[in-house]
């Protein structure tokens, strides 16, 4: 065959960003999604916050704050993480739709690197998470949580990492599935318990089986890091439900790398699942 023109390489970031943009456009064109990923956590926060107010026993570390810790305030970073988790679920459930609607096969036959396909999805999920969690976190002063610009940058930087991680986790779960019902089952049996046992919803105590489940749960370290960043100025002691900042970051980075690696491996595998 005669050479026609020089083969152009699609690169990594440009295709990843175009796929991420597509996620954003689709999200904003579907109003119900906007309400689902943000409204439910907000509702949980208001209702659980009011309902559990009197039965809540604040963890020991709250004594460092020098003021009583209300349940609504304890629950606050947990709801932010829930928004990130729900957004990750909504972003990755679309993998199943993309495959059914045929869009995915068009992407898979293109010369774009499989990492770019994964990064596109994750970046889209991350942007949506940051927008929604950002709106929620604007309520922080209501809880008596004050933060300066540097602190907010750190908070958003960490949320970006966490959103990347959870979207990658959703990616790994959604990719092998061929129905959204299957995803719902995984969400209820795996993702919700993971969130419940992360210290987001209740402190797990310092001993007993529950505290061990929490220690083994990678999301515990995500919630802890966010909590520590919100209480930047207070030297909160390390405990089972609140690991140190260094450990939290390390676990989250390892968790993220594992999920991203698995995602890329899954996308790279040629499979009958991907054809229509």
């Amino acid at each position: 065959m005669p050479a026609t023109e020089k083969d152009s390489q699609p690169g990594l970031f440009r295709p990843a960003w175009t796929l991420a943009q597509r996620e954003l456009i689709r999200f904003f064109r579907q109003r119900s999604r906007v309400i689902g990923a943000f409204g439910q956590p907000l509702l949980f926060w208001i209702l659980f916050g009011a309902g559990l107010k009197n039965s809540f026993q604040a963890p020991d570390w709250s004594q460092m704050l020098g003021r009583p810790l209300s349940y609504q305030e304890y629950f606050f970073p947990g709801v932010a993480v829930m928004i990130v988790l729900f957004t990750a679920i909504f972003s990755t459930i679309s993998i199943i739709e993309d495959r059914k609607e045929g869009f995915l096969q068009g992407v898979l036959v293109s010369p774009v690197s499989r990492l770019a396909i994964v990064l596109g999805k994750l970046t889209g999920g991350m942007c949506l998470s940051l927008i929604q969690a950002g709106i929620f976190l604007a309520l922080a002063p209501l809880m008596g949580i004050q933060a300066n610009l540097l602190q907010w940058s750190a908070i958003f930087g960490f949320l970006a990492l966490l959103a990347f991680t959870l979207t990658a986790l959703g990616f790994v779960m959604a990719w092998p599935l061929d129905s959204t019902q299957g995803y719902h089952a995984l969400m209820i049996m795996l993702l919700m318990p993971m969130w419940l046992l992360s210290g987001a919803f209740f402190p797990g105590g310092e001993s007993g089986w529950l505290s061990w489940l929490m220690r083994l749960n990678p999301l515990t370290y995500g919630v802890a890091a966010l909590r520590r960043l919100l209480y930047w100025d207070y030297p909160l002691p390390v405990s089972a439900g609140l690991p140190s900042m260094g450990v939290s970051l390390l676990v989250t980075v390892i968790f993220a790398s594992t999920c991203i690696g698995l995602s890329v491996a899954l996308v790279s595998r040629q499979s009958e699942r991907n054809v229509r």
Binding site: I25, R26, R29, E101, G102, F103, Q105, G106, V109, R276
Partner: peptide, 12 residues
């Protein structure tokens, strides 16, 4: 590649 089942994103 032109697939029999469309690979277009209908929402775009």
């Amino acid at each position: 590649v032109t697939f029999q089942s469309p690979s277009l994103d209908r929402k775009l």
